[in-house]
Write a protein that binds this DNA or RNA. Structure first.
Length: 435
RNA sequence: GACCCGUUCGUCUAUCGGUUAGGACUCCAGAUUUUCAUUCUGGCAAGAAGGGUUCGACUCCCUUACGGGUCGCCA
């Protein structure tokens, strides 16, 4: 029997990291076992569903690389994959419940009559959990069909998992208490229950529940900030799951090969955006220069920086120095245009060396005299100027860096000298000396 | 409130009765780079508390505390 998992979002909001990770674990589990991953849209709440949300969820999954084998835009033998189009199927299954005398009307709605007994589930992550349904106050009969004739989540969710022959339901821990309800429903429907795996929730850094507006919550924000999908997948996979190795950086294929539900934790994890950026940096560093340049281009263009013919060389100078592609424009602006700001702290530090500052004009003149410009030639001049004044070349390095870039951090000084060229270097040193 | 699940460095985690409790992010220091960063090396930092069980407990059991989840004609 081949494995079938599903992700069943309801289109009432954007895709957040918690949902994305649930989808990821389901996807990884299916891929790891050579099974099928199904996408089913649970749009039974007409009042709250929106097309924007549906699109955002699909876009988010596509961006993350979580492709589905069956579902909207894809088809499959168990469609339709929108619950709003499965009305007839639900009516049919509801009849089974009614025929078995397991439902009764209450204020116009239909309630499912629970069997009053202890119900035990064997969760793949949480282990054996028993809920005592003899305690009616804690487990009142639930509504399965509303007074307006529509069906509620519990019913359609169970029916569809049965209909679509889902073998493993991987979902958030917030559904743990729903599982015995679903098990009762499945039993009443004479169905075969899938295996359940409830994964712990993702919390904010302060331990509160992660929700909208929290940093890193919306998957849709990641592409805009310059994260690589593989990096985001890598990072969230490590929240609540561990690969049993000290390695932390993995490609999608490596994650697929290593994933297993046994290694999923039971405790909720907090979201550390700093580490997420670090993981992204690691993935960025694995990119080739060309790929990195292509990936960074939209960000450079959005910042209205001019793309010159030495674009790739400029970008290469900051590769491995940025954590996200979104940081690229601010890192290369001074290499692409003459307008850039000076960092007060860096300037103050550069000015702190009075001797070196006095040599700046001399250095600019030395640059002028170079006929065949190169970083080495420029450094040779810098060395001469410094030595002539009885100073160490190293003392001039930092002021020169600040004069050329306006900041204390940046690419290797040689890269800066090469990329800017003679005229710009001389001009900027003079400008800085006169400031 | 009731019912569930959980609790190892600040954070993500390893350990599945015997370890100097390991790794990573962050932070700090040193080395290297004639410059900042990178890189490298080193360092700071943890078993919620109290009882058991055991020759021996972070690992097993109980209690308490704390955190999270669920108690809808939302999903």
């Amino acid at each position: 029997m081949s494995i079938r998992t599903r992700f069943a979002p309801s289109p009432t909001g954007y895709l957040h990291v918690g949902g994305a990770r649930t989808a990821l674990f389901s996807w990884l589990f299916a891929r790891n076992h050579g099974g099928a991953f199904i996408l089913r849209v649970e749009d039974t709440d007409e009042a709250r569903n929106t097309e924007e949300a549906r699109q955002a969820i699909f876009d988010g999954m596509s961006w993350l690389g979580l492709d589905w084998d069956e579902g909207p835009d894809k088809g499959g033998n168990f469609g339709p994959y929108f619950q709003s189009e499965r009305r007839d199927i639900y009516d049919k299954w509801f009849e089974k419940l009614a025929a078995a005398d397991r439902v009764y009307q209450d204020a116009g709605a239909w309630r499912f009559r629970f069997e009053r007994k202890p119900v035990t589930m064997n969760d793949l992550v949480c282990g054996e959990v028993t809920i005592d349904y003899r305690d009616e106050s804690n487990t009142p009969d639930m509504v399965v069909k509303r007074s307006d004739g529509s069906y509620v989540f519990h019913f359609v969710n169970v029916v569809d998992d049965l209909e679509m022959e889902i073998t493993h339901v991987i979902r958030g821990e917030d559904h743990l208490m729903n599982t015995p309800k679903h098990l009762q429903l499945i039993e009443a429907l004479s169905g075969t229950a899938p295996q359940y795996a409830h994964i712990p929730l993702i919390l904010n850094p302060d331990g509160s529940k992660m929700s909208k507006r929290d940093a890193g919550a919306a998957v849709g924000d990641y592409p805009r900030q310059g994260f690589l999908p593989g990096a985001v997948v890598n990072f969230i996979s490590l929240l609540g799951w561990n690969p049993k190795t000290d390695e932390e950086i993995f490609t999608m294929d490596e994650l697929v090969g290593r994933f297993s539900l046994e290694n999923v934790n039971r405790a909720p994890a907090r979201f550390d955006f700093e580490k997420c950026k670090w993981v992204n940096q690691q993935h960025l560093m694995k990119l080739g220069i060309e790929d990195f340049a292509v990936a960074a281009k939209p960000f450079v263009q959005d910042a209205n920086l001019p793309i010159s013919e030495n674009y790739t060389a400029v970008i290469a100078a900051v590769k491995e120095k940025v954590r996200t592609l979104g940081e690229v424009p601010a890192a290369v602006d001074f290499l692409m245009q003459d307008e850039f700001s000076y960092d007060d702290e860096a300037v103050a530090k550069a000015r702190g060396n009075a001797a070196a500052n006095g040599l700046l004009v001399e250095l600019a003149c030395g640059f002028d005299a170079i006929t065949d410009w190169s970083a080495d030639a420029a450094k040779a001049v810098l060395s001469e100027v410094a030595k002539a004044a009885g100073a160490k070349p190293g003392q001039l390095m930092f002021p020169l860096r600040v004069a050329l870039s306006g900041r204390g951090h940046g690419p290797d000084l040689s890269d800066i000298l090469n990329l800017l060229g003679k005229d710009r270097c001389a001009r900027r040193v003079r400008r800085f000396a006169g400031m």
